[in-house]
Every structure is written in C-alpha cells, then in structure tokens.
Design a protein around this nucleic acid. Sequence first.
RNA 1: GGUCCUGUGGCCGAGUGGUUAGGCUCAGCUCUGCAAAAGCUGCUACAGCGGUUCGACCCCGCUCGGGACCUCCA
Length: 488
Amino acid sequence: MPKPLRIYNTLSRTIEDFKPLHEDKVGMYVCGPTVYNYLHLGNCRTFSSFDIIFRFLTYCGYKVRYVRNITDAGHLEGDRDEGDDKFAKRAKLEQLEPMEIVQKYTQYFHDVMREFNCLPPSIEPTATGHIIEQIELTKQILANGWAYEVEGNIYFDVAKYSQDNNYGVLSNRNLADLLDGTRELGGQDEKHGRLDFALWIKAKPEHLMQWQSPWGMGFPGWHIECSAMSQKYLGQQFDIHGGGMDLIATHHTNEIAQNCACSGTGPARYWMHTNMLTVNGVRMSKSAGNGFLPDELFKGTHPLLEKGYSPMSVRFFMLQSHYRSTLDFSNEALQAAEKGYARLMSAMKLIDTLKTDGDASAYIQELRNKCEFAMCEDFNTPIAIAHLFEGVTFINNVNDGREKISVADKTALKKLFYDFVFDIFGLKEELGSNNETLSDVVKIILEQRADAKARKDFASSDALRDKLLAAGIVIKDSKEGTTFTVVG
RNA sequence: GGUCCUGUGGCCGAGUGGUUAGGCUCAGCUCUGCAAAAGCUGCUACAGCGGUUCGACCCCGCUCGGGACCUCCA
C-alpha cells in the first residue's frame, strides 16, 4: 500500500483512516441496478466510480471481493410497499414475461458496463437467485421480534427497533423528523407504524414472480435482498458498502436496520455514496425524464446533445470531478473533456519514442507519490489527473528537446502512466487506433503525401490531408515524420 | 415545513489559514511552405456583508442564490 488510505464515511460524515477487517483483504458491496428499464448515465457514474475504487484498492495490494447485485424482483413502484411490481408493469407494457424484461435490461446493463470499461465484479448475485436466503433472514428477524405478519405480509417494526437502535444513523435524522415527513397511514393500511417497511410481500394470484414461503406465496421486499446477499458472500460485517446518495435515506437505512435486527451489527464499517449527475443543475433521474441513455450519448441522438461522445471521453469527464460532488452535464464540458483526454492519450503514445539522455532524477517518483497521495485521500481522481497532466507537459518537453530523461526514468514514466491511466482509471485507447488495416492504409497515403511534399507539390499534399481530415483522420507533421489520429 | 449539501476565473472542476490546482476556451509568440500538433506567455477567480486572526477563498455568524432528501430512481 502506497500511503494510508482515507475514506469518507457517510456514517461519521468525516474522512477516516481505512482499516480493513482482515489485514490485506477488502469486502465491498455495491447496490446494483434494478433491471426493469434501460439504465441511464447517472447510474453509470456510480458504477464507474466504484469501478475505480475497486481498481485502486487492488492497486494498493488488497485482495478485493467486490459484490454488486442485480435487483430482478421485488421492487415495487412506491417504496412504501404499494403500487405495481416494476417488472410486472414493464412486462405488460412491452408484452413480455417479467424474466424477459430482466434478461433484456441486464444484458443492456452489461453491454454498457463493457463500453465504459468497468471491470465485472467478483460476484454478481441476483435477488431471484437468493429467495431462500431472504426468507431465512425474514424468519430470523421475525423470531427476534423485530417484525410482524399481517395477512401474508411481513413488515419490519421500526418503532420497536428504534427503542434500542438509532434508525437514522446513516441519514443523520431523528425518528421524530422522519415521522414528520411521512404521510399518515391510510385506514386500510396493515402497517403498525408509518416507517415500517415490507420484508415479504404477499403476491396476488396473477403475479408471475412469486415463491412459496412460510407465509404463503409471495415475493421479497426490496431491501432484504441486499442484506441477504451481502451477508452470504461477505459475512455479517464487511468493509465497504456503496451506492448512490439517493439510497441513503431509505434503502440503506432499512438495510442497516435489517442487519442489526438479525445479527446486532450493521453490515459495513464504511458507507460510501456517490453524488448525482445533473443536467442544467437538476438531478438526472428516471422520473424527471432528463436522463440520457448511454446509446444516445455515444451517438449524439439526444436533443440536448450537439454530437456524440465516446465512452472513454465520458469516463474521463467523470474522473475530472470528485465522486462526492454533483457533476453537471453540458456539451461544452463534454467537449473539453474529450480534448483533454485526447491530449493525455497522445502524450502517452509519445513515451516510447522519447530519446533518452542524462541522469536519473527523482521527478518521476515524486509524480507517482503525488498521484497516489491524491487517490489515497478519498479517491480524489481530479487531483490525480491534474498531476498526470504535469507529466504530460514533461513528456512533451522531452519530446521537444527542452527536457531530458534517463533510460530508467523513461521506464518508470511509462509504468506510472500505464498504472494510473489504464489500470486505475480504467481508460483505454479507442476509435480504431489499434486497427492494423486502417493504420497500414493511412501510412500508404501519408507516403504519397510525403512524396508530393518533397516535390513541393503542395496542392496535392494539402488535398490528401484535407481528404483524410474529411474522413476523420487528423495528421500532424513533425521533424521525425508524420503521425495521425482518428477522430470521431 | 423539516433535514442537509452547495455558490470558485469565459466554461468545467479541485483545493488550502499566508506559495501555480488541472482541463477546455480565447489572444500573442515559437516551430512550419501553409495548416494541424506541440511548447511558451498572457487572461489570476473564489456570492454579499460582518466577525475571529498578524493574515481567510478556506474558521464563525447573517443575507441572498442553487440543489438534494423527507413518494420511486445510482
């Protein structure tokens, strides 16, 4: 591990030293998507953030078990355990089976994660695959006296739980305030308390996704799945639990209550939450209808977008802000990121071609220290990137003969950039620059142009350059020869 | 109404009690047949008003503005 790692913990609302439960191992659980619809870019930001956290923990030498679930059952429209099942509703709309909906949107989710170059988690459990575990957990909570049954529904008793526990530990709210903000129970409401939530829900006969339980046919509540699956794969207590900030108030609060009701301890020691993506200052969300689909972003088909942006440009864009800050989407900001990213990549390509000369210096090691330090301070990617850009300037200076670099430093420099840009930030080269055939063809054309230039036939050489540009290939001349890049 | 976050230069976006964040943009210069690329230089900000301090963008208070959560959403 390079430096002591420090992490902002939502529980304490401060940055704390990170000490894993087990020496060199880290258990991390991140709430994944509910696959009843296309995921939008806001979701991508959260998963990309945790992807980088996962990658950096690995870089630090930890053996990380990263569990990210897929919610494929039990999520009702209203979190107060009312309304239709999200999957059933969507299935009706698309005239498909609920599991076809699940399959379709899980596939889409995975495709997008791959586009963003997010590593797959170590385990990706589904709610439907853990019905038994959820029933067992519910039974236990019931046995411990923290829940009650009404007509085949099992509800968590928040009032009783609150007698001995702080229900609002995570959201930092007291019970009275919480009750204040909740509407009155209706006359027919089966719940004893306004904050009570369902662990198990009785299914209507026509409901397709239902399972046998001690309380009849039904399906699990939304929150119980995470308690069940995190416990199964990471144990009663593990290191990091993450998700979007919007999950703090309800989902994660209930999850902690369930775990405490079961085992007397909350699931995680460090709770990490990513902030929201905004569009024109307003939160991007499914209900607001202002969410870009990843496809729309890549192709530029959304009305708010002037053009398409590649997945890596977007990933870089996200890296330029801290995960706990809101990030605002705009064409201008996206284009700035696109250019900055291109500059970073072209500097990296230069490293191999740098001429070595001179003595070793401490510069490269200092640069690595600075990057590591930034990441160790609650995964501060924007600062790490700022330092990397100092390295970019250095590379360009060496390339232009204003600075010197020793053989050993050149190797260290390359390692530094590859470690951070590729391994930690998860960026990669894109846009066909690794397409051998295209590369060969362009080289042939560039030779023609060089001939024309040698003959001082600039009309021809410029024509070739313009035509290449029109085809999306930008060339740049230098003393060493001509190179090219493919743009979108 | 309650709880909480936030207000940085043309744009995005970090950060700290006293030294340049960084990216993009714009202007000038170097290089170049021209261009592009690259480099250098310039544009030097921290909502407003008080207070604490030798000194605050960073600490405290107030005012104004933006946003989030308390129905679902990462």
